[in-house]
């Protein structure tokens, strides 16, 4: 790890000194920007998480009271954590499997492939307002399209969003539909980077299609998959839009996510201190999961 070496040890070697200076120089614009636009606001909200702050009047220091309340006396927070974890656990594997399959499927030069790629990418670009309106209608219990089709097959009616047992899964379904196009694009870009000679060599060795996937494609896509998992963790653990637009956290709190709780406490109850504390507890969870994931992939990659 480079971090274990001191700046002075780099300074002594001319080539390493140059690399180091260039390294800092290239990172500097981004780092300066992140410092101002991200770190300052995050540090402010970290401070606010130790206060009682109703946005309209000045914050009052309360120490760790917000954290204590959340961790020991807040059933809804615990429920939201559980919902969020379950949601992420369902969305991530589905998303990765389907988006990789789609990417492999459209990574060919056949006629009209551009059209299919575009069609698969459509859910990503359609405004969330329109998407949630359409899905609310699809999920409508009595006259929605999904139940109409199921009814023809003699199934149903399914109470998609109105049933506490199903609502979260219904949101998962919609999220996967909406999200796979995005990851498909990343996988597609990743597939471009795999050198052709590897496949040619494998063909000479008589590898089957499956063998090529297992021994070349999948290992070569590791950095991409790693990226997709980390980004997936970060985004699914902060799921808000679908909940806000479609269920409002119900029924029976079954779709209340942590990010929804943050919004609710910050801008509906004006308890910004507590909302910030929720956010930092969530931050802790995502950070730990990301680090575990990074460890796992680094040991597997190297």
């Amino acid at each position: 790890m480079s971090a274990s070496h001191s700046v002075s040890s780099y300074w002594k070697n001319r080539a390493r000194r140059h690399t180091m200076l260039m390294g800092y120089l290239f990172v500097a614009p981004m780092a300066l920007y992140v410092l101002i636009v991200h770190f300052i606001p995050i540090a402010s909200s970290l401070y606010l998480s130790f206060t009682d702050y109703n946005i309209l009047t000045a914050p009052k220091w309360v120490g760790v009271a917000n954290y204590v309340k959340l961790l020991f006396r807040d059933d809804l927070f615990r429920r939201a954590m559980r919902n969020t974890a379950q949601y992420a656990l369902e969305v991530l594997p589905l998303n990765i499997a389907i988006s990789l399959a789609l990417a492999l499927l459209v990574n060919r030069a056949t006629r009209g492939i551009v059209i299919f790629r575009t069609l698969f990418y459509l859910p990503v670009v359609t405004s969330i307002i329109a998407v949630s309106m359409i899905w609310l209608w699809l999920y409508e219990p009595r006259s929605g399209l999904i139940n109409l089709i199921l009814g023809k097959l003699g199934v149903g009616p399914v109470n998609w969003l109105g049933s506490p047992a199903l609502a979260l899964h219904s949101l998962v379904l919609m999220r996967v539909w909406r999200g796979v196009g995005w990851n498909m694009v990343i996988y597609l870009a990743g597939l471009q980077g795999i050198p052709q000679y590897l496949y040619e060599a494998a063909e000479i060795d008589g590898a089957s299609g499956l063998g090529k996937f297992r021994y070349i494609t999948w290992p070569m896509l590791k950095p991409v998959t790693y990226y997709i998992i980390v980004m997936g963790l970060i985004s699914t653990f902060q799921t808000f839009g679908e909940v806000y637009a479609m269920t409002g956290g119900g029924p029976l709190d079954s779709t209340t996510t942590v990010a929804f709780l943050v919004y609710q406490r910050a801008f509906q109850y004006f308890e910004m201190g507590e909302a910030s504390a929720v956010a930092f507890l969530l931050f802790g969870v995502i950070l730990v999961l990301s680090l575990v994931n990074i460890r796992y992939f680094q040991t597997r990659l190297d």
């Binding site: 609310l136 209608w137 409508e140 219990p141 009595r142 006259s143 929605g144 109470n159 969003l161 109105g162």
Partner: peptide, 19 residues
């Protein structure tokens, strides 16, 4: 009465669709 969420059909309210 049940606990399902009645959206009606798009812009047609549920009382107009007969649900």
């Amino acid at each position: 009465t049940d606990t399902s969420i009645n959206m009606g059909q798009g812009n047609i309210p549920s009382i107009a669709t007969g649900e």
